[in-house]
Structures are given as C-alpha cells and as structure tokens.
Design a protein around this nucleic acid. Structure first.
Lengths: 337, 337
DNA sequence: CGGTCTGCTTGAAACGATTCAAGTCGAACG
DNA sequence: CGTTCGACTTGAATCGTTTCAAGCAGACCG
C-alpha cells in the first residue's frame, strides 16, 4: 500500500541515478541501449508506476481534461462525451466526465474540483444562462471550451450546433405538413438551447398564420415529456403537432399520446430534437433534428488542444448545422395516399 | 497562467506562515479567529486554489475514484454511474467515469491511467472473462470493487445482480406464455453477464420440452440487435419468442421485426434486459428484467469506502435481485381476450 | 599530444502542499 | 516573582517526480 516503489527504488535496483530513470521514461532516445534495458527490467520487476501527482507538480501540466455535461441521462451528451474521449485518447489525454444535472450548484462544485486538479482544460456545457461557470474558469485561468452553446458575450472558444436553424427546420416541416396550431414542449426554459430552438420555430412560422403554443416543462427528460403530453391533450383547441425541445421529451409526449388513445401522427404529429438512437426505435419512429454529437465532442477537444498548445490563439466559434430526419411521427400515412 | 497564487503567496499577503494557511484550510478550529479571517480574506482576494497534486503527493491520498464501465452508450451503465456519483459526492469524492467499450485494450489503458493518478479506488465492470483487469489492480495494490459481476475466483468486493435468476425469470415468463421455441439473442457471448442470463434461461426451460435457440450477436447494441433480428426471421421453424441479453438488442430486434412486417407480440414475443427508460417508450413497450442500477453504483462506492476506510476489511459480495417487468411485447392482446 | 566533440550519465534544485516538533506569548497559579 | 499551562504560530523536512547544468569517457581531428 504505502510501500509503492518510487523512481528512487528503480534507480537503485538498476544501479543508475534517478535522472536516468526519468529519462528512460520520458526521453528513451537519449539513454544508452544497454542502460535502458536494465532500467526497463527494474521497472517491470518492481511494478513501478509513476506518480502522476508528482509529475504534475513538477512539470506543471496535467494530462486530463474535464468534461462537464448537462445531463448524462441524455444520450446526446453521451455521444458528445464519446467523441471527446476518442479525440482525447488520440492525444494521450484522459477525460474526466462529470454530470451537472443542470444544477448550477453541482456545476460549481465540479468546476472547483477541476480547478484543484489543475486539469489541462475544461469542456463545459453551461447549466445556467448567466455564464457564471465560465466566469469562474476565466478567473482561475483554466482554459475552457464551451460545448453545445455559443459564447454570448464571453470571449472563448465554443462548439455548438445552430439551434435556431434546427428549430426552424422542425417548424417548417410541420408547417409543410399542414399544421396550423403547433405546441412547443420546452416553454420558456432558461436553457439557451431551448430558447433558440423555440425562436427558430417562431421565425419559421412568422407570417404563415400558424401559431406556436408554449408548453412548459419541469425538466428535459422523459418524465417531463409525459407530463407535458398529458397537459397538451387538455388544450383547446388541441394543437395538431408538437415540437419538442429534445427527444426525451418527445418520447414522453409520445407515451402520453398513446396512453390517451391518440394516433401519431394522424391525431398528433411529433418532432423531437437530437436524433438519439432511441428516437428511431420508438413506438412511432420519431422525426427529429439530428445534431452531429460526436463531432461536437471531438472538435471541442481539438479547440482546447489548440488553445493550450501555446502560440498565439484566437478564440474560434465552431457552429455545426443540424439536419432534419423525417420518420413516422410526422409522416401522414405514406402508403395510403 | 503559470503565475497562479500558491500557499506561500497567501501566507505573505496575510502576514502569517505557510503552516498557518494550511491549518486554516484543513483544520480551521485550531487557528485563532482573527488570523483565520485575515487568511480567508487573502485566499479570497488572491483567488487561491489549492493544488490537488501537491496535496496528494504529500498526504498520499487522492479524492477521486475511477469508474470504468463497459458501455456508456447503454443507459444501464449511465444509471450505475449516476448512483456512484451521488454516493461519492456524499463523501466528498469525485468520480472519473471512463468507457472501456468492451475493449480489453482500452480497459488496460484506463486502469493504467487510474494507477498513475493514484485514485482512491476503482469501480470496475470487467471487459474480459479472464479478469486481467482485476489482476492488474491487485498487482498495484489499488483497491477496487467489481461492478455488475460476481468475483469468480478473485478475492474482492463485488456488487452484482443475479443474472441467472434474471434469465430464469425471463424464460419462465415466456414459457408461461406458451412459447416452445425461444431464441436467445446474445449467443455464446464472452461476457459473463450474458452467459449467466443464458444459463438461467436454460435452467428455467429444463424439462419443459421447450428449446432455446442461440442467436449470435456481434455486439450488445441496437445495431447488433437489428442484425440478429434479421437473422432470426430466417430461422426455420421461426422461434415465437426471443429473449435478448439486454434492452439495446431487444430494441434492435424489435425494429427488425417491424421492418419485416411482423406483429409483436403475436408473431414474435420479445423480452429485454435492464429495463432502461427507453424500453417503456419503444414501438411496443418492452417486457424487461429490471436491475436496480443506481443502487448498484451507490453500493459499490460504499463498499469501496469501507475497504479504503482502514480497519479490518472482509470482502463482501452484494447481490441484488432482478425483477420482471411485463409490458406489451409479451402480453398477447390483453383486451381482446 | 592537446583539444573538441559527442553521447551518456549524474546529482541537486525545484514544484506546492502537509505535518510536526519546537517556539512564543499571556494568563493563571502557588 | 517564578512556573506552568494552554492557545496559537512557526519553519523546516518531506512527498516523488522533472529538469538541467555539469561531469565523464572515449573518439576524432589537426
């Protein structure tokens, strides 16, 4: 336990100095072949593992980056994490994934943890609109990249997907389907992403004569969707379509519609957002707005690498385009037509 | 950047010694009130953040635990992670979640990363049958708890769910539904969990005259399920039911059945495993074997805490019971009967 | 043969915290 | 007044690495 072998033990065992051992580990090419072999053998034999804390303390740089996501229960963020992990591994970095669950307090705790760890950098999907998380990172000089969110006033790198355009795609699709009274499940949610999707939808409906009915939600998960769906059914006149701020909500709404005996899409058309894998497997396959989640994660790591890579760095805002994927939940009877 | 304030700067600013600053941080009660206030103010004003690596190097103990899961794309493991994170936070620990994606090589890499970090301990869902990951941890004296897997020969703590019983529940249910030819999507998968579920099912079918048809799968995700489903439809005589090693496979099979125009459950009954949230929202709500995922994660952290808590420790094997949740995918026409 | 160069190796000085024996200062006591 | 005690504070040693100036030995050159 406490007797783990250190670099000194290795040095003694191999009959060399600690400096040489360190060189074998970090710059093998400068060490003589025979010496290197002897040191390697000693390392092997003692089961030596270098202490990352000591390394980091001395060298100043950490090999892990922190990723703080809004909701690990949402497969979209899992995909982002996967993309980030891949890109990080390619650079020999580790990713520490944490879940703020949209609670600013938890976000603050985790950011403090990251700061104490002196992580290489942080990928942040902010939990609040004010950007207090970003401010905290800035204050402590922790490099960071905003993920799934355009940096508003903040001067920082960001990777996001155009939510306004996505909302607009969804609404335009419903409009083309003949819908004139469309609900938006997401209401006036404080999350920027939700607000943007809503305003994109509003813009698409502008001047069409169609109206958007706000439907408040308590959260952004399936349960909140079920709840919103139940309330939707009570509205008079009932909207003929609903655009949901994400697929989890959409799945919940779908369940509520089924429970009430409604047919989808005939009685209620549904559009989700994110195009998570489960959207295609739903009771009625969901039409959804796809976001390139893995690419977002990957790109975020790359931007972070550039930022920490030294040299002049100009903050960049990368914005991906979303894409509408049409499925059964909005396709009215394709084969009976 | 490199000019982050250290404990020395704080000491100077507050006009005290470094020892006192350390005391203010770690044992505030031994410091005089007025001094404490002055130090706190200095900390605040300088934006001092303690260096975790230095702390850890000196004190020897880390505040983070590593969690290595088999597949972050599977919501079951996300739930486990969530449970673990909660329990860890309650103890002031952080969790570093990593995804081995069932690749032993990735598992080894992450375990090496954990070892270098000198994590407090590791929660491991082993990716291979041989337990090489556990052996590596044992060799380096890293405390660990096996998750979702009984420790076979290994002397270690573990938290798992009785997969044999779960498989048996599923098969018994199908048997009671009158099925005599039942496919098992999971085949002779190398994962212990899958093998156990299969043998539980076999045991339940023993002597009933019903047969179990193995259906190999390339992975344990939706795509593999679709593939297995397509092959299932070609079998002659076609099984009337399929038990899937997890819900992702089940969702894939369901999609394949739909694509082929089969009715579920009339033409093909489906039972999944894990009861992930999306199982209930599927095209036909899935009958599934529920596992108490969050409790598994929570318990694992608690066992780890006991193990690292000092004092005599006897390894414990906690085994939870699974529970069958019956839904539409096996319920033949409940209202037409 | 003296000098330079090249290729390896060395050893000590950081890095930023924690810990602890030792020191200081007043107050209380006999 | 001299001691003792308690409450607080100090400063040096330490943790396990990396880094780097300096040393050393042999080869090569003129």
């Amino acid at each position: 336990m406490g007797n783990a072998a250190g670099i000194k033990d290795v040095a003694r065992a191999a009959g060399v100095s600690v400096g040489t051992v360190s060189n074998v580990i970090n710059r093998p090419e400068v060490v003589g072949e025979e010496t290197r072999a002897r040191v390697q053998a000693a390392i092997e034999q003692l089961g030596y593992v270098r202490s990352e804390s000591a390394r980091q303390l001395r060298s100043g740089s950490s090999r892990i980056i922190g990723l703080l996501v809004l909701d690990l229960g949402n497969p979209f963020f899992v995909s982002v994490a996967r993309g980030a992990e891949q890109a990080a591994r390619a650079q020999g970095l580790g990713v520490m994934v944490c879940n703020s669950a949209q609670r600013p307090a938890d976000e603050a705790d985790y950011l403090a943890l990251f700061a104490e760890q002196r992580v290489r950098g942080v990928l942040l999907t902010p939990a609040d609109a004010e950007g207090s998380g970003a401010a905290a990172l800035r204050r402590h000089d922790v490099p960071f990249v905003l993920v799934d969110r355009l940096a508003p006033g903040i001067d920082a790198c960001s990777v996001s997907v155009d939510d306004v355009k996505g909302g607009s795609l969804a609404a335009a699709h419903l409009l083309a389907g003949g819908h004139r009274r469309i609900a938006f499940a997401g209401g006036r949610h404080r999350l920027q992403q939700v607000a943007d999707r809503r305003s994109g939808a509003l813009a698409a409906l502008e001047g069409s004569g169609a109206e958007l009915v706000d439907l408040e939600v308590a959260g952004l998960d399936v349960a909140a969707g079920r709840d919103a769906g139940a309330r939707l059914l009570g509205l008079l006149p009932r909207p003929t379509a609903v655009f949901c701020a994400n697929d989890l909500l959409a799945l919940g709404v779908l369940q509520a519609a089924f429970a009430a005996g409604l047919r989808v899409p005939e009685d209620l058309a549904i559009v989700g957002y994110d195009d998570i894998e489960f959207a295609a497997a739903a009771a009625v396959p969901l039409t959804s707005v796809r976001q390139p989640a893995e690419a977002v994660g990957r790109t975020a790591v790359e931007l972070l690498a550039q930022e920490t890579g030294g040299g002049a760095h100009r903050h960049r805002q990368v914005v991906f385009d979303p894409e509408l994927v049409v499925r059964g939940s909005t396709l009215t009877a394709p084969r009976t037509a």
